[in-house]
């Protein structure tokens, strides 16, 4: 992208606006499917007896797994499975995107049987100079996951790099 990237007032206005909530289910089947996908051999993520012996209520969520978003045709992304939420869109006009990184912070245990509700928001906008790409707009998205008892169990932040 030639020229300078600018964080406009319209872009800044999107920061902090929470999305509508969406439901994420953690089931014994979904935990096993994720564990298989990563390649775990640890029985604690597959066998409920092994999970209980290790001190969990049921199969625990493997790290980075925060439940499976409920899929509703027309409301969910067919490619990424998450909700296509309505809300203010960031208008930056930059055509290319890279996934910069992911961070998950845990506050409480998450196990099969839990139902999480997540909301997300753009939490930060910044501009960075990259040697290979030049100027990039860094958009940090933060999702907050709350369980069926109203306890915030995790926050996940992702950085998208637009250029």
């Amino acid at each position: 992208m030639a020229g300078k990237i600018e964080i406009t007032r319209e872009m800044q206005a999107v920061v902090g606006v929470e999305s509508p909530p969406w439901r994420y289910e953690v089931t014994t089947t979904s935990v096993r499917a994720f564990a298989r996908g990563v390649g775990y051999a640890d029985p604690v993520y597959y066998d409920e007896q092994a999970a209980r012996a290790a001190g969990y209520r049921s199969l625990p969520c493997p790290p980075t797994y925060l439940g499976t978003p409920v899929f509703i045709p027309g409301q969910s992304s067919d490619t990424f499975s998450g909700p296509m939420l309505s809300g203010p869109r960031l208008q930056h006009g930059l055509p290319n995107v890279l996934d910069g990184g992911t961070e998950t912070e845990y506050f409480a245990e998450i196990c099969a049987g839990d139902v999480l509700t997540a909301t997300s928001k753009v939490s930060d906008l910044s501009i960075r100079e990259s040697r290979s790409i030049g100027q990039m707009l860094i958009v940090t998205n933060e999702s907050t996951y709350t369980n069926q008892d109203g306890v915030v169990v995790a926050k996940q932040r992702g950085q998208a790099l637009f250029y």
Binding site: G55, L98, G101, E105
Partner: peptide, 17 residues
Amino acid sequence: SNWLNHGGRIVKLSCQY
């Protein structure tokens, strides 16, 4: 997770691509 072998929990985990 393999290293902890359920002797503790992850508080924070991050990576950059």
